[in-house]
């Protein structure tokens, strides 16, 4: 660890801190936002630039300490950024389906007219 120059340590620290701060904010949003559909947005903070920051730190650290020209963290970035939208879309569709099945008025109805914009508590008749 001693062979790491100061500039590299600063950069690694910066990326690690920025990435984990974004992840923390995302999860705080998960805890603080009010409805499910608002909370769906929160985890993408951690999976987009949160993950990129921390994995950049890892790439930099292992490349500079010379154990390996580390690039395979890129795999995690690609993997996470491809899978997160899929899981979130599936979950959101499941939530839509359940809310519609219960007809609790939280979501716009399945077949709806020509209106372009619907406010959050949608009119059940719309």
């Amino acid at each position: 660890m001693s062979e790491l120059p100061v500039w590299a340590a600063l950069l690694v620290g910066f990326f690690a801190l920025a990435g984990s701060l974004l992840t923390l904010l995302g999860c705080l949003g998960l805890a603080r936002l009010d409805s499910f559909y608002e909370r769906v947005h929160a985890p993408t903070l951690g999976t987009s630039f949160g993950a990129i920051g921390i994995l950049l730190a890892s790439i930099l650290y292992f490349s500079v300490t010379g154990q390996r020209p580390a690039v395979h963290e890129v795999l995690i970035v690609i993997f996470v950024s491809l899978t997160t939208p899929v899981t979130l879309m599936l979950l959101a569709r499941a939530a839509l389906y359940r809310d519609r099945a219960e007809q609790n008025g939280n979501v716009p109805a399945a077949a709806f007219g020509q209106d372009v914009v619907v406010e959050a508590p949608a009119d059940p008749q719309a």
Partner: peptide, 14 residues
């Protein structure tokens, strides 16, 4: 759909 969902602040539903 992946772009819109991956962007925080907007989510593709249906």
């Amino acid at each position: 759909s992946c772009i819109i969902t991956a962007t925080p602040g907007s989510a593709w539903l249906e």
